[in-house]
């Protein structure tokens, strides 16, 4: 699988930022059905790093490649990642690294056997790190609030909510409730620049999923979005990947 790729361009998929970029292309494709976005996403996925180096946040989007192409090598990569022991998230942002992928696996390939475990992981993070007085999460044990880490957590939540079958309502709803509480706290706290685009993205997704009130939250997202010019991450040494 990896051997088939052009090794000179291998490298996508080793960081969370890579995952965020490809998720954006996939979202644009789904909204517009524009073939260009689909191809961009597939091209990036084709240039995936080796499974050993792959960030599991990126792995979530291997399912897109599998669904779009039907090629079994993508499934093989997914199964290989699943077979690696995955550690439970410790810090808030860790949720983005593995939980949407695990939910995707449960929903698409594992007959929903352990959806409850994925939801429990989110609940555990929320209960352990949420500061009720402040209304926001700490980034980790003994750490302060971080808008950036909270943004990753919110993206993880909406991605997982999107994947979760609503007929497993108690699980779906548990994730929605955590997202709502997180969103209220973050907006009350004020959002640092480095987190604005990601939080705005999560709000757009949440509005699209129908889990938050667009009247209340869309203006906030639009304002955050307007204030940011997003700079996509590049591969090291690849000058043509500037965005």
């Amino acid at each position: 699988m990896v051997q088939d790729m052009d090794k000179s361009r291998v490298g996508w998929g080793t960081t969370r930022e890579h995952a965020f970029v490809v998720s954006t292309y996939i979202a644009w494709f789904r909204q517009t059905e524009n073939e260009t976005y689909r191809q961009c996403a597939l091209d990036m996925l084709q240039q995936s790093a080796a499974v050993e180096d792959m960030c599991s946040a990126w792995a979530t989007y291997l399912f897109f490649a599998y669904e779009q192409t039907g090629e079994e090598r993508w499934r093989d990569m997914i199964e290989q990642l699943v077979s690696q022991s995955m550690s439970e998230p410790v810090k808030l942002a860790d949720a983005y690294d593995g939980l949407p992928f695990r939910m995707a696996y449960e929903m698409k390939l594992n007959r929903m056997a352990w959806v409850s475990k994925v939801v429990s992981a989110f609940k555990e993070l929320h209960e352990r790190l949420f500061d009720k007085a402040a209304g926001v999460h700490c980034a980790g044990e003994g750490m302060d609030y971080s808008a950036e880490d909270t943004a990753w957590f919110m993206l993880a939540l909406v991605d997982t909510i999107e994947l979760c079958d609503q007929q497993l309502y108690e699980h779906w709803r548990a994730l929605v409730d955590i997202y709502r509480v997180t969103l209220r706290g973050v907006l009350k706290q004020g959002v640092a620049d480095e987190a604005k685009l990601k939080i705005a993205t999560s709000i757009y997704k949440a509005v699209d999923l129908g889990i938050i009130d667009p009247e209340r939250y869309l203006p906030a997202a639009l304002e955050m979005d307007a204030q940011q010019m997003y700079v996509a991450p590049t591969l090291k040494g690849d000058e043509t990947d500037e965005d």
Partner: peptide
């Protein structure tokens, strides 16, 4: 019954 009806649980 339900999507997870045949699971071990």
């Amino acid at each position: 019954c339900d999507p997870d009806g045949h699971t071990e649980y």
